[in-house]
Nucleic acid binder design. Sequence first.
DNA 1: TAAAAATTTGATAATAATTATTATTTAATA
DNA 2: TATTAAATAATAATTATTATCAAATTTTTA
Lengths: 145, 145
Amino acid sequence: MESQTHLNQKVQRFSEECRQKGLSVTHQRLAVYKKLAATKSHPTVEELYDLIVPDFPMMSLATVYKTLETFEKHGFVSKTRPTGEKARFDANLNPHHHLVCKVCGCIEDVYDEALSRINLPDTKTSNFRIEDFRVDFRGVCSECQ
Amino acid sequence: MESQTHLNQKVQRFSEECRQKGLSVTHQRLAVYKKLAATKSHPTVEELYDLIVPDFPMMSLATVYKTLETFEKHGFVSKTRPTGEKARFDANLNPHHHLVCKVCGCIEDVYDEALSRINLPDTKTSNFRIEDFRVDFRGVCSECQ
DNA sequence: TAAAAATTTGATAATAATTATTATTTAATA
DNA sequence: TATTAAATAATAATTATTATCAAATTTTTA
């Protein structure tokens, strides 16, 4: 788990960056960012909404959608959709990879230095410009086994 | 491109496996499988439907959906959804990875022996059982540059 | 600090992708 | 070829997401 002070620092940085980018720092945006930064569970939009509503009952689902879209555009969160129908979000932008459960769709993070050092494939012929890469390890999580 | 004879063999094997698994070999299923096996473009359901309709005008979109779901369940095709909203399908089950264009969403295959030899991360603590993995190289395709 | 301007929100409508339903048709097999 | 189980086609329903827009909030500026 992230320490409380670390989390606060992260939210602090987030607020500053919002101002730099001309984004209003609203209660809604702070609520979404705090909840997402406080979890490792890569929630769906609806899961995140359900996490926020107890603290913030007038929050609208559409606002969560729009907020996450804005966050992604400005590089505050990453969006992934390895299986299933729903997109999942993550406020952790450190380079990492994913363990994706084929059964329930949950995602765990993998930190492994070795994975950052894999050789990029040769794309001269196709002329594809590689910018980054992600490894999805697929299998079954402990709960679903 | 796959040679015509190779494609025919593949369709042949598909038919046999269907029978072994108790799946009827219908015109619709053959049409879907043939079109998918003949392309490297990882089409969406709708794209595949549009490819099939000229040859097979009474094909229903819902049938393409259901057929692909059946194929995936029986391991005839793989489904991926690296970006964007729509799922994409592939009849190529050889181990390979993907170049995913951030702009148009197109997918090219990557064959690289070295990638098959990456070390799996240690999942003792989380007890996640890894079955396989896929690397998505993200960037911009030649068309979109 | 107050007023003006700009942005964001919330409620809801619209759209897009996918899945469910069911009467009809087709394939497998005796 | 007739029987039976499975698959299809047409369409309705559902789910996830995006768009709209008036009202509210936030930021800017005086």
